[in-house]
Design a protein around this nucleic acid. Structure first.
Lengths: 333, 333
DNA sequence: TCGAGAAATGACAATGTTGACATGGGTGCG
DNA sequence: CGCACCCATGTCAACATTGTCATTTCTCGA
């Protein structure tokens, strides 16, 4: 390697052709005799030749690489699937995904963008850990840019986000359709979009069903990043009141887990004595709980996939795509 | 972009120097007058020039890229930190990490290796999701290779793994030192290394303390990938027997979560009426449980870091590194 | 058998950069 | 004053490949 890496010319010599013919073979050009092709392929295999991507890049002006900038805990449990979706879709389209993680304070952001642009990425996906508004630096716009799990305030960039509102409507409807008439929603911090949209969808759906009583409870207090759970307190109030609900919808799976504990402490069996449903489908929680937690899966994988597709479709329309969420029904509701 | 990407020559023209001088500036070569340097840097900024990595690669024969192959759920919640550790260390050393995920049946493995080698990666890290033996294909050995969270059966490759045995000794010792005398260990599937090593460390430590009674319970049944939890049954037996333990050590955090539920069902308070400790430190579980779960954190981040360092140190010794685990003490033990 | 047209192959320039080496102008020292 | 030397800068080849266009070889119909 290094010094003695075999080149297209070595292969040509071994195969007894011009190096241009070798180039044709590795690029699947039609105009090559089957015998010539065979000879060349044999030589390639014998010498262990691999095309040099760097040289290819210069001539063809295509890097075959797409950059993905994952903000903060982009590698968190919440959004690994976004990266996976992007990676698999890119791979399927013959592209390579380069992932860069940005730390909390975004101090390596500019350096990251520089590195990606130096490598002549054909597009960039900016993926956020949780659904929120962002304001991407102008540097980023040097190549096609798609936002995933976030959107820009000015509405100038294509983006793909989960349809939180519809998800909340769906899960609420499910609780109603399975016979529940008193539903408490344990909301997230309303400062985050998911908090606002989920409670809006919940309440709108409740209001469409006059026979159903539904209300929201503040289950999280404190600032983002400094949040404190109020679930135990809320649950204890709910269970001891004369307005005891028959179903509890949780803003996220961690809340559902606390709810399970509260129920068990009160000798109630989740899913039997009280329906529990939730959002996020963190499998490690949803599948470990007994009974399994029925929860709305966020379309992380699909967002990654969509972002790549949009980028490669060269569709320059600025679309603001909302992807629907899947309800994963287990036994809790 | 594409057609009109500015090159080193454009910069040279704008700065009124030869393009070689521009090359010197972007490579931080000493022999450039401050004024010349300034002129060039201004031109670079004005034109938005970025060096073309492809061209650099050809001449310098260095790609600046390290490949990381993450097996299966390498992107799982368990080992994202390994990737993060590798990424940050690579970044700190001026290298770029390219991550490829291999699917369950490894069918895209060869293609993945090809892609990495075509890009002339300077080394490859093979990272496994869970600690086990692997048998890397010879293709991989074309460049320096380091195994992370796994080891090769033949012992021919450098690797870095968690010191499961020492971790088990440490946590057991902690339980003993905090006054517990009857300790049950709820073991993992003994087919996996963590299962064997953790129970070995537990039992060895117990045997060093004649005053302490300790034993293992089979908490998981079934094959890898098809595992069934026996925790409820085991716990119910333990809590109803006259040999009730005063501390429970769990093979992993998911087991600890089930243990919490069993305790609460029996009106016992985890951490108060019964100590609970565990392995893995899945924060989403360990921090959501009340009280917080005391658990041994696996050195995923450090393994990623070590792998990069070893690769870049050009230390060709085949070391088999065991990294120690950190005990994260919360309130459960 | 010949010629036309298509198919296969080759020669050579071009890509954007760095390495090796050359040049020119200033500085220090005898 | 002249010579040697160093530093700044420049010239040109080399890198591994693809694009363009030219050349050779083959095929088929008259």
């Amino acid at each position: 390697m290094g010094a003695g890496m075999t080149t297209i010319k070595d292969v040509a010599k071994a195969a007894g052709t011009s190096f241009k013919t070798v180039s044709r073979v590795i690029n699947n050009d039609d105009n090559v005799t089957p015998e010539t092709r065979k000879k060349v392929q044999d030589a390639i295999k014998a010498l262990g030749y691999r095309p040099n991507t760097g040289a290819r890049m210069i001539r063809s002006k295509k890097s075959g690489v797409i950059g993905l900038i994952a903000d903060q805990a982009g590698m968190s449990v919440h959004s690994v699937n976004l990266i996976r979706g992007a990676q698999e879709e890119a791979w399927a389209q013959g592209k390579f995904l380069m992932v860069i993680n940005i730390d909390d304070n975004h101090q390596n952001m500019d350096a990251a963008i520089d590195k990606l642009l130096e490598r002549r990425v054909e597009g960039i996906i900016y993926a956020a850990m949780y659904h929120h508004a962002v304001n991407p630096s102008d540097e980023l716009r040097a190549v096609p840019l798609v936002l995933a799990n976030c959107y820009d305030e000015r509405g100038e960039l294509p983006c793909v986000v989960p349809d939180e509102y519809a998800a909340a409507c769906d899960v609420t409807r499910h609780l109603i359709n399975t016979g529940h008439r008193r539903i408490a929603y344990l909301n997230l911090n309303p400062r985050i979009i998911a908090g606002r949209e989920r409670s809006r969808g919940f309440l709108d759906t409740i209001h469409q069903h006059p026979a159903v009583d539904g209300w929201t409870e503040k289950a999280i207090s404190g600032e983002i990043g400094q949040e404190v759970s109020r679930v135990d307190e809320v649950m204890s109030n709910l269970l001891n009141s004369d307005r005891r609900p028959d179903a509890i919808l949780c803003g996220k799976d961690e809340i559902a887990m606390s709810v399970y504990f509260s129920l068990v402490e009160h000798s109630l069996q989740p899913g039997h004595d009280m329906a529990v449903a939730s959002f996020d489908n963190l499998e490690i929680i949803a599948e470990s709980l007994k009974p399994g937690l029925s929860t709305m899966a966020l379309p992380h994988y699909e967002m990654g996939q969509w972002a790549i597709r949009h980028l490669l479709s060269e569709n320059l329309e600025i679309s603001h795509e909302r992807l629907s969420c899947d309800f994963i029904r287990r036994a809790s509701a």
